[in-house]
């Protein structure tokens, strides 16, 4: 590639930085509803039928892609239903349109991003089955200036993570729904517990789940629970500060906790200050949720590495 290409690229990037820093943008996304499989690796692992929103047609992603915007942005989302059943798309606390999108059709959603924070998007249809199959993801709204703060003039962070915690009942729900059968929803005994769609020990080391940084840094962790079970997440190494819980911004000084309870469809934004060198786990304290079909140490677990 020639020098002109790089010059143009630099110019485009500079333009993006300059305009993005001060002005509201228009952000457009297309999500495709797709069926496929979720693979849980390692001992106790399995291939689990699932459905998802994805930005790559034909390739399911559980959870769906993160939608990252700033306050004031105009957000346009088109959802294309490539599946054989009806689905919908709701961003809890942001959109209100729960109209079903029939198989083969699509639907557009548009809104102006308002309050900075973390939001859950999911499919509300089919008696929780669509959600359980993997139809969820997160909308991240940053402050208008795009700075590394929880909100405008709010607490600052060095880096952020989004943890989407969920669970699946492979035998009674996913295998049945994936084969086109009717799920008896009264019984739900999930045997796979997921953080960002990983249910094996590999979730502990994944770059998108680990809090990995140097002492003196601060991580903003955005937690989203699209599952049907309450989660009780325990942090080793340091306490967290709770900034936002279930959409309610907390007041300063923030509560300092080492366990946070996230109910079904709940969200939380917490700060983890990297205070001492060492390796620590973050895990669900509901012990059966740290397993993959009973095999420990899997499920809703990750690592905190302070260097």
């Amino acid at each position: 590639m020639n020098k002109n290409f790089y010059t143009s690229l630099l110019f485009m990037l500079a333009t993006l930085v300059l305009t993005g820093a001060a002005q509201a943008a228009t952000r457009s996304y297309t999500l495709y509803i797709t069926s496929g499989n979720l693979t849980v690796n390692g001992t106790g692992g399995a291939t689990i039928p699932g459905w998802s929103y994805t930005d790559v047609p034909g390739t399911p992603k559980i959870p769906g892609p993160a939608l990252t915007v700033n306050e004031g942005d105009t957000v346009n989302i088109t959802v294309v239903n490539n599946h054989t059943l009806s689905h919908n798309f709701l961003i809890k606390g942001v959109t209100t349109d729960t109209t079903a999108i029939a198989a083969g059709l699509s639907r557009a959603y548009s809104f102006t991003a308002s309050t900075a924070g973390t939001y859950l998007y999911y499919d509300t249809l089919n008696n929780n089955i669509n959600r359980e199959m993997g139809m969820y993801g997160a909308l991240i709204v940053g402050p208008a200036d795009g700075s590394s703060k929880a909100w405008t003039n709010g607490p600052a962070y060095t880096f952020q993570r989004t943890w989407i915690v969920s669970e699946m009942d492979k035998t009674r729900w996913n295998d049945v729904a994936g084969a086109g059968g009717a799920v008896a929803t009264a019984t739900y005994k999930p045997n796979y517990f997921l953080i960002n769609g990983r249910g094996g020990s590999d979730g502990m080391m994944a770059a998108d789940t680990t809090i990995d940084g140097t002492v003196g840094q601060t991580a903003l962790v955005r937690i989203v629970n699209p599952g049907q079970f309450a989660n009780s997440l325990h942090f080793h190494g340091n306490h967290i500060q709770v900034l936002t819980l279930n959409g309610v911004r907390q007041s300063s000084p923030y509560r300092e906790l080492d366990v946070i309870n996230i109910p079904p469809l709940g969200t939380a934004d917490v700060l983890y200050y990297l205070n001492q060198p060492g390796d620590y786990p973050m895990h669900n304290h509901i012990a059966q949720m740290e397993t993959a079909n009973g095999v420990y140490l899997n499920g809703i677990v990750t690592m905190i590495k302070m260097r």
């Binding site: 009780s232 007041s251 000084p253 509560r255 906790l257 080492d258 366990v259 309870n261 304290h285 509901i286």
Partner: peptide, 22 residues
């Protein structure tokens, strides 16, 4: 207190959810 830290504001209530590890 909650989780071994003084609560910034003491909470007077009639019920309290206690989850695993809290």
């Amino acid at each position: 207190t909650e989780d071994g830290r003084a609560l910034p504001t003491a909470q007077t209530v009639t019920s309290l959810d206690v989850s695993a590890g809290q």
